[in-house]
């Protein structure tokens, strides 16, 4: 196995174009090193992009938050800008692994690994985040919601890398929350549930809703039926119950050592309710 450490995005993209499917991008290596050790992936060349310092930033302007793909989870979690204006996102980042993992893993690496149990994907999708993908020819933008295709598969082409995540500034009276169920703090999510709720001027009715589940299907799952159950209505016990039921229905968890399918489905309901309730609190 060869190893390359390009210093620029251009250099990285041309290496990827040259080696095609034999190349794998590595950043923090938190996820990929496990796959390499278990020999689940055996690339011809590892393209280590951690040396591309231009991809390590967090900035914002009037309309959006911009996160460089090589931002470490820990930086993201601790960033004053994120903590101040997107506290829900900072809290979601806090739930990723342990401090050592968060110091090694990158935001972009986690998303490109496309483990459906990612803690960042559900809240980012719920809040309408967009990914910037680049290759030698140029760049394109894709809604994060459409970025994930299947287990560990994204819409990235062989010669593309993810360079940036852009998160639109949320409208007023909007709350977002991410709830995670795992047997241990620091584990991958057994269930992830993110909710976004925007209330009307009187804070009576929900005018916009986003419900996204993690870890209970091949990709993060946006549950439109659950959103419908909330949108245009007062959020009360009845709409909460409907949203939770829709989320349970939309989920397709697998039995494993973290729990049976049946239990996990029940927990999808519990986590969805909790996420919506907390988003509602934050919006109020």
């Amino acid at each position: 196995m060869e190893y390359a450490r390009p210093a620029t995005v251009e250099e990285a993209c041309s290496l990827l174009a040259l080696h095609g499917e034999g190349a794998r991008v590595i950043a923090g290596g938190v996820a990929l090193s496990i796959l390499l050790k278990q020999r689940l992936v055996e690339p011809d060349i590892l393209v280590d992009i951690e040396g591309i310092h231009s991809l390590r930033y967090i900035s914002d302007d009037a309309n959006e938050l911009r996160i460089g793909a090589l931002c470490k989870h820990r930086e993201f979690e601790k960033n004053p800008l994120v903590r101040d204006k997107f506290p829900w996102l900072s809290r979601a980042a806090e739930r990723i692994g342990c401090v050592q993992v968060r110091n090694a893993g990158t935001v972009g690496g986690s998303l490109c690994h496309a483990d459906p149990a990612s803690d960042l994907a559900p809240p980012l999708i719920a809040a309408g985040a967009e990914a910037t993908l680049r290759n030698s020819q140029g760049e394109r933008k894709v809604l994060l919601e459409n970025f994930f295709i299947d287990y560990y598969q994204t819409s990235l082409s062989e010669d593309e890398i993810l360079t940036e995540i852009r998160l639109p500034r949320l409208s007023a009276r909007t709350g977002v929350s991410y709830e995670k169920y795992a047997m241990r703090e620091g584990d991958m999510a057994t269930i992830g549930a993110a909710a976004l709720v925007t209330l009307d001027d009187d804070k009576q009715r929900c005018i916009e809703a986003g419900i996204v589940l993690g870890a209970v299907g091949p990709t993060p799952i946006r549950v439109k039926e659950a959103e419908e159950a909330l949108r245009g209505r007062a959020v009360n016990e009845s709409s909460l119950r409907k949203a939770a039921a829709a989320a349970m229905e939309a989920s397709s968890p697998l039995s494993d050592s973290s729990g049976s399918e049946q239990y996990k489905r029940e927990m999808v309901g519990v986590m969805t309710r909790r996420a919506v309730s907390r988003a509602l609190q934050a919006a109020s």
Partner: peptide, 25 residues
């Protein structure tokens, strides 16, 4: 939480990702 999961004599969780031990948390 601790349990070695076996199916037909084969261990299913022979690593510290899938085999859960208590942590500092």
């Amino acid at each position: 939480m601790e349990k070695v999961e076996m199916e037909n004599g084969r261990i299913l969780n022979s690593n510290f990702l899938d085999y859960k031990m208590g942590t500092v948390h």
